[in-house]
């Protein structure tokens, strides 16, 4: 049974969750990311069909969808690795541009630079952005402290465990203080224990830094655990089928009946068979 705080579609767009209201102060700066009519064809293959939604400043949005629904294409459009056939993505009202805006991406595959130490990996994006050295130092120190990487700072990624490597990548993304942080199934290859651990870590970083996050996953439980709002994608040509607001207090519990209800609801919606 869907509960009352499962507000869908139009309602969801307007109704901010209670935690959001606390975070927000000025209503006009509410919308951070605006996706308008995003459409993508690869030749004649219609992958994305007229996707529109908004993300509020500091919001944590999860995107779920059936296998092969074009989630990765969707992300690659958001980061401007591909350019859309039609429609556009706006950040603070401006067409998104990686050179101007601060985008950060945590990829599914391990993506630490193997020839750089942990610390230099964390510095990488900041140095590309040509930030002042003292700003870089300060941010990197903060992330190292937050993730407890003090002892590992001079190690190389291949000397670390897979989960530590992924933590560095997550740290590198948060260190950018991105306008928009995109995560593409970052825990796809990890066992349950590590996933729980890293999920909590991302939540902690997000709460402390107030970053706007779009988190793509195929794991519905993960989505319900982390998201303030879940976007459910349809099969190809992909569009946003439904939005679900998750208004549960944190830390969330997997066995909470409300949690289970939302999970079941999303699972039901995602079924394409």
């Amino acid at each position: 049974m869907p509960r009352t705080d499962l507000r869908h579609n139009d309602q969801a767009r307007q109704g901010a969750s209670s935690s959001m209201e606390r975070r927000m102060s000025t209503p006009d700066s509410d919308i951070k990311v605006e996706v308008r009519n995003l459409t993508k064809y690869f030749g004649r293959l219609h992958v994305l069909d007229d996707i529109s939604f908004n993300i509020k400043r500091g919001e944590f949005v999860c995107v779920v969808g059936p296998t092969g629904c074009g989630k990765t294409t969707f992300l690659n459009l958001l980061t401007r690795i591909y350019s859309p056939t039609r429609g556009d993505l706006f950040i603070d009202g401006e067409s998104a541009d990686p050179k101007k805006h601060n985008l950060a991406f945590v990829f599914q595959e391990p993506s630490a630079f193997p020839w750089l130490t942990v610390e230099k990996n964390l510095r990488f994006g900041l140095e590309i952005k040509k930030l002042a050295k003292d700003v870089i130092d300060e941010r990197v120190e903060m992330i190292i402290k937050m993730l407890g990487l003090q002892d590992l700072r001079d190690r190389y990624p291949h000397q670390l465990s897979v989960s530590s490597e992924q933590r560095i990548i997550i740290g590198r993304a948060f260190a950018m203080h991105p306008d928009l942080l995109l995560m593409d199934e970052p825990y796809g290859q990890m066992d349950v224990k590590l996933r729980f651990f890293l999920e909590d870590e991302v939540i902690r970083l997000w709460q402390e830094l107030g970053t706007t996050v779009v988190f793509i996953t195929h794991n519905i439980e993960e989505a319900v655990y982390m998201a303030q709002r879940i976007l459910i994608l349809s099969t190809k040509p992909t569009t946003v089928k439904e939005e679900v607001v998750v208004d549960l207090p944190r830390p969330r519990r997997f066995d909470d009946p409300d949690f289970v209800a939302i999970r079941n609801y999303v699972t039901e919606k995602i079924k394409w068979w």
């Binding site: 401007r80 990686p98 991406f105 993506s111 952005k129």
Partner: peptide, 19 residues
């Protein structure tokens, strides 16, 4: 993937080549 990391950071093609 590493090229994409640099690209999303807004690096120019030459910077990606070099770094």
């Amino acid at each position: 993937v590493l090229i994409n990391v640099a690209k999303t950071c807004g690096a120019s093609n030459f910077t990606i080549f070099w770094k």
